[in-house]
Design a protein around this nucleic acid. Structure first.
Lengths: 216, 216
DNA sequence: TTAAATTTTTAGACAAGTCTAAATTTTTAA
DNA sequence: TTAAAAATTTAGACTTGTCTAAAAATTTAA
């Protein structure tokens, strides 16, 4: 199959391609914490394997074959995260690094059985959709909380930042997946927001509101 | 921590050391399916890290630090095998290769929680003891079935050969872990045996009897 | 006990993936 | 539109873990 490094590159290209059509060498270097020159080397190899379309200086995108591999890795990552939280009682801010390792366990039979064992969950602990065994991803359309106008209601369904620090902050404020909120007021000065949740008022910064994803 | 290759060498040295005090370069090369020269290179590296005692031409054994790592990997391997069989309904002949990958997932917190989740099992699906979280291995003393004399009773508690072929054969004959048997007769000509199990008679070769481990 | 066989190590090479430094291409902005 | 800045690629080197071939040490057996 593919090496660990190849899988990580494909996964990173997939994630970056969600927000920019052609993924640049530097974007990848930043995400993978490596050097642009190393990225170039790997892009050539992935292009040789026809997993990406690569034109020098023009960035890359995944071929159908490359996307299939990337989605499969993301499926594994999210199912293992679900397992760690739901079965082993880890917190949602503790599971990322473990899942980064577990996503490379190769057996698809294993992951399909794990999926069944857990009752075919649709979302991981951070609200991200879990691709099904055919590679189908149900990408729900969610708004950042910052774009919700005062008076409107919504449900927290995802986060845009997965850092431990942000997740721990949210946990502390009880701003977790599934919570229903109402935007009470937005402060013009700093774009902070006052929310109503479970009868209480919570004030959050624009930064936080930008990174919380809401379904209305 | 240690690389994948280093972990596999330590594990192999541990397994070989169970039957021969000093493990030879060629034994390791055979088990790891690599060349003796590659083994020598790695032994130097492990000796530098003080994980093994290595004298050129004299074979190796594990230091306390090396054994601790080896036992921890074996703990992970066996707990994951138990998980695959008990929770995901794999057969005992299907889990080895998957566990070979999973044993390298680094988190000890993860494996300790997995252990708890499964109720602290004492033996893996092949009857091998699962080391506890402190690295303690309860090595039960078992006899090969071939050394049991006619008339004696016993319980199948382990296997000496873990190959898919052998495990599938045993499954087919219902010669599985926990089964109670009685040796009815041994045939002098080829050392085959006739067993009584659950009211039926089963005839097995010396080869099979040699690889079945019995508690009396 | 010594010659042959076996085991082990050494020497030199290679592939994967990374790096730094330099060269090249593209983009930006005057 | 062109010079400077930024992004990207190339060149050459390094590490890990492997290999083959040859040399050295150990064991076996006559």
């Amino acid at each position: 199959m593919n090496t660990l490094a190849e899988e990580n590159y494909l996964k990173s290209i997939y994630h970056l391609a969600l927000s920019s059509a052609n993924v640049s060498t530097n974007q990848l270097a930043a995400l993978l914490k490596t050097k642009a020159s190393s990225v170039t080397d790997m892009l050539k190899k992935l292009a040789d394997k026809e997993l990406i379309n690569y034109t020098p200086y023009q960035g890359v995108n995944l071929t159908a074959a490359g996307e299939k591999i990337a989605v499969n890795i993301i499926r594994k990552h999210r199912l293992w995260e679900y397992f760690l939280v739901e079965k082993l009682n880890f917190k949602w801010d503790q599971v990322h690094d473990m899942a980064e390792e577990m996503e490379h366990i190769s057996s698809n039979e294993l992951i399909d059985r794990l999926d069944k064992f857990m009752g075919f969950p649709k979302h991981d602990p951070h609200g991200d959709p879990i691709p099904d065994c055919n590679g189908l991803v149900k990408t729900h359309h969610l708004e950042p909380l910052s774009s919700i106008v005062p008076g409107q209601h919504g449900t927290i369904c995802g986060v845009r930042n997965h850092s431990t620090m942000f997740l721990q902050y949210l946990e502390k404020q009880s701003l977790t997946i599934g919570k229903k909120i109402k935007v009470a007021e937005t402060i013009e000065f700093d774009h902070s927001m006052i929310l109503q949740m479970e009868g209480k008022e919570i004030q959050i910064s624009r930064e936080v509101a930008n990174n919380l994803l809401i379904a209305q």
